[in-house]
Design a protein around this nucleic acid. Structure first.
Length: 482
RNA sequence: CGGGGUGUGGCGCAGUUGGUAGCGCGCAGCGUUCGGGACGCUGAGGCCGGAGGUUCGAGUCCUCUCACCCCGACCA
C-alpha cells in the first residue's frame, strides 16, 4: 500500500478502530483538528450531512410544537450553581471566563456546557399560567465541555448540537414528552442514519446531573463498542425549583413546572462513519448523503464531451426530481481514480456514462454496498426510479447494520459469558443496580451499563456479577463505549 | 494526571559511526492518457517542534522545554 494513497484497511473489530477512523476522516476530508486541542473544524461536505440532519430534526420539532430560539453562550456562574447536582456534575468540565474588558470579572462566567439553567431562567420569566404550558424551546448551539480526552467528532471539547428544553404542567405530560422524544430520536437514527439504535433508560449511575431519569439511544459501532447517539432527560421539578419556573394552575395555586431536555450532536456524524464504514471508506446513508448519486462520464476527446453533456443532462433531471446528484467532470483524474474517490466518500449510487451507454440510452449503475456489481439500466428507468432505489438502498443498509448488531449482542447469565460477550459486542445481563457493582464491572471488563432497552419483555434474575436480585424489570445492556 | 509513542516540504515517511537534507503521494506547467487508484518531462515547496550546550561542523550526541497521538481515569 503506497503511502498517502489508500487509507488503512478496516481493522479487525478486536483491534482499536481509531486508526481507521482517523484515516478515513483525514482522507475523505470531512473534518480537521481545530486550533484548540480537541476541537474540530467541520468541512463543507460533512457539514452538509449535518445540515440534512438538522433539517429533519427541525421538521420533527415542528410536529412537537418546539420553537427555535437562541440563548447566550456565557452564563453567570451563580446561575449554573442554582441546581446542586447539576453544578457538581459539570464542575470538572466547565470552562470559566474570569477576565474581560481588561480586568478580572466580579463574577466569573461559565461557557455553557449545556443550557438548562440559562433557558430555564428565561422560561421562569415567560411562564405565568398553565395556559403557557407546555413551553417547548430548541436551540442550535455550540457548547463546551473540557473533556480530559477528546476524540475527533465523538467527544470534542467544543461541539455542535441542538438542545430542546420543555416545561410542562405536570409529571405525566412531561414524562409523555420524554418518551415521545426518545421515540423521535430512535426514528431519526433509523430513518435518516440507517442506524438501528436501541432506546432505553440509563441506570442511576449514568444519569444526567440533575435529572430524575435519563434515556438514551445507543448505537453499535463496527468494533462492537456502544455510542450514545442521543439523550433525553426528565428533570422533574429540580430545575423549575432552582430557577423559579412556576405557573398559576387552573385552581389558582402556584405550581412548579416539570421540565425535560433532549439533545443530539455532531457525534451522530461519527456514529454514521463508524457504524457503516468499510475497507473502502465511508458508507453514507442516502438520506443524509450530501451527494446521493454521482455521475461519471467516461471517454476521451469528443467522446468525453458527449458523455459529459449527457451526464450533465442526467444530473439536471435527477436534481429536478429532488435527488442530490453530482457530475464528476474533472479532467485531471482517471475513471478508476474517480470511482475510488467517491467510494471513499460513501456516495450510495454511481452512474457511469460511456459511449456504449450513450448509444443505447443506458447508464451503468452500481451501489456502494452489496454484491450486485454493475448493472446496465435504461436511463429513463433510472430517472423514474431513483428515489425508490435510494429508499431500497437505505433499507438494505439498515438491515445490514441490524443483523450486525444482533450478531454481536448476547444474552448472558454467567460472568464468564459476560466477559466474553463485552469483548466483541454487547451483553444483555441482569444487574443489581448498585453503583459499586457497576464500577466493579467496569474495572474488570471496561464495560459499562449503556441502557435498559425498552424493547424487552419484563424479566428478572440475579445480578451477573454479585448475584443479588436484579433491580430492574429487564436486562441491562452492557458494553464498552466511546 | 499515570503508562506508551511521535515531532523532518501540504500529507505519509527515510536519513548509516556527526560532514552542507532525501523519497513517495499531492501540488503547478506541458504533452500523451482516460471502461477500476495512468505516464513522461519540467518545476515550486524545508530555520529538520523550540531553547541551550558539546564540536571545526548537529536532523543525528547531551540537557531542558513545547506540541501532538495512543491506552487509562472524566464524559453527548
Amino acid at each position: 500500500m503506497s503511502a498517502g494513497k489508500r487509507f488503512t484497511a478496516l481493522p479487525s473489530p478486536l483491534v482499536n478502530m481509531a486508526e481507521w477512523y482517523q484515516s478515513v476522516l483525514a482522507q475523505a476530508k470531512l473534518v480537521d483538528h481545530g486550533a484548540v486541542k480537541g476541537t474540530m473544524v467541520i468541512r463543507p461536505y460533512a457539514y452538509s450531512m449535518w445540515e440534512l440532519l438538522q433539517a429533519e430534526l427541525n421538521r420533527r420539532f415542528r410536529l412537537f410544537g418546539v420553537e427555535n430560539a437562541s440563548f447566550p453562550s456565557l452564563i453567570p456562574q451563580s446561575m449554573l450553581d442554582r441546581e446542586a447536582e447539576h453544578v457538581e456534575g459539570f464542575a470538572p468540565e466547565v470552562a470559566v471566563v474570569t477576565h474581560a474588558g481588561g480586568k478580572e470579572l466580579e463574577e466569573p462566567l461559565v461557557i455553557r456546557p449545556t443550557s438548562e439553567t440559562i433557558i430555564g431562567h428565561s422560561m421562569a420569566k415567560w411562564v405565568e399560567s398553565y395556559r403557557d404550558l407546555p413551553m417547548k424551546l430548541n436551540q442550535w448551539a455550540n457548547v463546551v465541555r473540557w473533556e480530559l480526552r477528546p476524540r475527533l467528532l465523538l467527544r470534542t471539547i467544543e461541539f455542535l448540537w441542538h438542545e430542546v428544553h420543555t416545561a410542562h404542567a405536570d409529571e405525566a405530560d412531561a414524562r409523555r414528552e420524554t418518551l415521545s422524544a426518545l421515540e423521535m430520536y430512535t426514528s431519526v437514527a433509523r430513518e435518516m442514519a440507517a442506524i438501528p439504535v436501541v432506546p432505553g433508560e440509563k441506570t442511576p449511575g449514568e444519569r444526567f446531573p440533575g435529572a430524575v431519569c435519563t434515556f438514551s439511544i445507543e448505537a453499535m459501532m463496527l468494533d462492537g463498542k456502544a455510542l450514545q447517539a442521543g439523550t433525553v432527560h426528565y428533570l422533574g421539578t429540580n430545575f423549575a425549583e432552582a430557577l423559579g419556573i412556576q405557573y398559576a394552575s387552573k385552581d389558582g395555586g402556584r405550581e412548579y413546572a416539570h421540565t425535560t431536555s433532549w439533545g443530539m450532536s455532531t457525534r451522530m456524524l461519527g456514529a454514521i462513519i463508524m457504524a457503516h464504514g468499510d475497507e473502502k471508506g465511508l458508507v453514507l446513508p442516502p438520506r443524509l448523503a450530501p451527494i446521493q448519486v454521482v455521475v461519471v462520464p467516461i471517454g476521451k476527446g469528443e467522446q468525453l464531451d458527449a458523455t459529459t453533456d449527457y451526464g450533465r443532462e442526467l444530473v439536471q433531471k435527477l436534481v429536478s426530481k429532488g435527488v442530490r446528484a453530482h457530475l464528476d467532470d474533472r479532467d485531471n483524474l482517471s475513471t478508476g481514480s474517480k470511482y475510488n474517490y467517491w467510494e471513499l466518500r460513501g456516495v450510495p449510487v454511481r452512474l457511469c456514462v460511456g459511449q456504449r451507454e450513450l448509444d443505447d440510452g443506458m447508464v451503468e449503475l452500481s451501489y456502494r454496498i452489496g454484491s450486485e456489481g454493475k448493472q446496465s439500466v435504461r436511463t429513463d428507468e433510472v430517472l423514474e426510479q431513483m428515489q425508490a432505489l435510494l429508499d431500497a438502498y437505505h433499507d438494505r443498509l439498515l438491515l445490514r447494520a441490524e443483523s450486525f448488531r444482533d450478531s454481536r449482542t448476547t444474552t448472558v447469565d454467567s460472568w464468564d459469558d459476560f466477559v466474553t460477550a463485552v469483548k466483541t459486542g454487547w451483553a444483555l445481563a441482569f444487574h443489581c443496580g448498585e453503583t459499586a457493582c457497576e464500577d466493579a464491572i467496569k474495572a474488570e471488563t471496561s464495560a459499562t451499563p449503556r441502557c435498559i432497552s425498552s424493547d424487552q419483555s419484563s424479566e428478572t434474575g440475579d445480578c451477573v456479577l454479585c448475584g443479588a436480585p436484579s433491580a430492574y424489570n429487564q436486562r441491562v445492556i452492557f458494553a464498552r463505549a466511546y
